[in-house]
Design a protein around this nucleic acid. Sequence first.
DNA 1: CGGCAAATTGACCACAATCAATCGAAGTGG
DNA 2: CCACTTCGATTGATTGTGGTCAATTTGCCG
Lengths: 279, 279
Amino acid sequence: MAFPSLLPNRQMANLFIKKLGLRAPLSDADRQALEQATAKVVQVEAHRDLISQGDAPEHAFIILDGFACRYKLLPDGSRSIVAYLIPGDGCDLHASILNQMVHSIGTLTPCSVAAIPYRTVKELAAYHPNIYKALWWSVLVDEAILQEWLVGVGRRSADKQVAHFLCEMMVRLEAVGIIRGNSYKLPITQSELADTAGISHVHVNRVLQNLKSLRLVDQKWRSLVLLDIEELKRFSGFAPDYLHLRPSRTEESLIEPLTDVAKSQLQMRQRGQRDKGMF
Amino acid sequence: MAFPSLLPNRQMANLFIKKLGLRAPLSDADRQALEQATAKVVQVEAHRDLISQGDAPEHAFIILDGFACRYKLLPDGSRSIVAYLIPGDGCDLHASILNQMVHSIGTLTPCSVAAIPYRTVKELAAYHPNIYKALWWSVLVDEAILQEWLVGVGRRSADKQVAHFLCEMMVRLEAVGIIRGNSYKLPITQSELADTAGISHVHVNRVLQNLKSLRLVDQKWRSLVLLDIEELKRFSGFAPDYLHLRPSRTEESLIEPLTDVAKSQLQMRQRGQRDKGMF
DNA sequence: CGGCAAATTGACCACAATCAATCGAAGTGG
DNA sequence: CCACTTCGATTGATTGTGGTCAATTTGCCG
């Protein structure tokens, strides 16, 4: 159903290949190499570490199904989640360059995971320019998401921050085609959400109640359901440009129109730039 | 004067090449190619944008001298600094893969900058495996720093956060050899520090006064001076492992020893992992 | 000297952390 | 089938870190 036109007369490729294919045109050889590399799939139950802080990296992982996250354990015992991995995401594909992991990767739900030797990753990148490009793309997007989170934690209020995260996850899930309509459920606990947004789990609870009273989200069986996505986006100031979902450079600008305040600020900065050098 | 021993019978290589050389052994051909690529240097004054949010990326930039930063302008007109670029740093070397910049790069001080066409970056990576490796390394470190900042903004108190940032900058500057002893000055304003740490500039001022009263930093001519680095590191819980400065995988672990609290937490998690599946 | 940006200080207060208790649901063992 | 445990969710009370507003001072540069 999802993107049938992209793979007309072919068995459905796995989500990793599909995702890369959205970023760079993959040849049959590319796809075949990727199929082969991700052929060995293991099932991992929820709440297991795929790799832990301090380990030397040994394999690259591809999440083919389920949710996982990248997190850090702090010296004081608290946990900070710095990224979510959804089906189709690779993690730390080039981490072998570094000596040791400074974060852990853990599953949030039961997952299907392909473990690829780094040697294979290297070969794929070396012999398949389009795969190379697609891999870079995904690393850059990861970094852009990290930047957006950093900005959010520093600037946004707790409820906007949570709402923004919910929007981001929806857009990402939509992009790989694993959710259909305007709502989805997120199988994570409030404590995990707290470790994501950098707020206390108590406050997460209050924030969610607020969002519920605004009819923006709902909760069933321990998992969130988004109701009014558009309003949620507006509420949180979500602009999807940093996810770089659009394929071509030629399309229209995705930058959110600046508010009047921002415009005047920008003008001041630019004027200053001409005069005295402020940006 | 700086590190004459590293390049005995050779004209001083620029800091970019030096930095890459710390991460992967560069051949003479590698160095020559890099020299050539970074030959065209332009001087840029302080507080200019090298590239702005919304632009399509056109060149990769190498900062050869001076300080710059990556920042985002938010719709409400505020600014958030998400990375600092110091001499030897490249920025967005592979950004050509993306359609548009979602952040700006601006100088903080007068800078010497080399602009490299993306085509050249691509060729360097394609024909020089060691450069390829070193480039990946620097991107991964960028990402690790971003993660550490994210954790810090979410979890650390304002003074720890600022102190941590000061430690990080010192270690980075030390690593490229542009500072000598145990102190250095940082030519940024308190407002810039505020936009970095995600706190108000008023509070930055109070934090700095606190650090001054603790004899950890000092201020002269609008630039900070760190006094007691070791104590500053202890104060902020700074552990340099995420900067991945050590070259070899075989060296001793750099992971900060966990506190007792953290150990018991970790044990709980691991025990849980065996039993019920918590991490 | 005048103009401007950065730094500083004080007063006030709000958002969110912390502490502490309770509740609810799911799973477990008797 | 029912106690018991455990984890997650919920609620209230209290505290405090850091934001906002506003005024003043310092330092820089023309």
